[in-house]
C-alpha cells in the first residue's frame, strides 16, 4: 500500500468511532502494536524530547525502504507515534520526504501536532522526514 492508501484506510477506521474515548482506546491499542525500538538505541542519541513525554526513534534502510522503530514513555504518545510509523514505515525515502500527512487533520488529532503540544510529536514527524532526506541523499 502507498502512504496515501494507508492514510485513507486510517481515516476510514477512525470514522467508525463516534466518541473520543473509543478513539483514544484505539490509539492506545496502536501503541501496543508499535514496532519497538531495539533497547540499544534507546539512548539520548535517538531521543526526541518533548517538554513532557519522550520519544525514541530509529530509522533503518533496508532494500530501498526506510524501516522505523520507536518507543515512548507515555502511552498516548506511543499510540500517536504508532500511527506515524504505521503510515511512514516501509516506504522509499523520497516518498516519505515528500509525503503530505493529511490524515492527521481528518481523524481529528491535529491538536497533538501543534507546536505547543508537549509530546514532541511534531519534532518526531520532522525527524522522520529528515531521516528519509538523509537516506535519499546517501542512496
Amino acid at each position: 500500500m502507498t502512504i496515501n492508501e494507508i492514510q485513507d484506510e486510517l481515516i476510514d477506521d477512525f470514522s467508525f468511532f463516534d466518541d473520543w474515548m473509543a478513539k483514544y482506546e484505539y490509539i492506545i491499542q496502536l501503541g501496543k502494536e508499535l514496532p519497538l525500538i531495539d533497547d540499544r538505541y534507546k539512548t539520548d542519541h535517538y531521543l526526541i524530547k518533548g517538554c513532557q513525554s519522550k520519544v525514541w526513534l530509529h530509522a533503518d534502510h533496508q532494500d530501498g525502504r526506510v524501516i522505523f522503530t520507536a518507543d515512548s514513555d507515555a502511552i498516548i504518545t506511543k499510540g500517536l507515534v504508532g500511527l506515524m510509523v504505521k503510515v511512514l514505515s516501509g516506504h522509499a525515502p523520497d516518498q516519505i520526504a515528500n509525503s503530505n500527512l493529511y490524515f492527521i487533520d481528518e481523524i481529528g488529532l491535529k491538536e497533538h501536532l501543534s507546536p505547543t503540544r508537549a509530546n514532541g510529536l511534531l519534532s518526531m514527524v520532522k525527524q522522520m522526514k529528515l531521516y528519509a532526506v538523509a537516506l535519499n541523499a546517501k542512496a
Binding site: 483514544y24 513532557q52 498516548i76 508537549a118
Partner: peptide, 22 residues
C-alpha cells in the same frame, strides 16, 4: 504506572484543565 501526560490528555477531553509535567 501511568505517565502524567496521558492523564492530562484524558482530563482535557473531559473539560478538566490541570497542569502536567515538571
Amino acid at each position: 504506572g501511568v505517565h502524567p501526560y496521558d492523564v492530562g490528555v484524558i482530563l482535557d477531553k473531559l473539560g478538566v484543565a490541570v497542569r502536567t509535567g515538571h
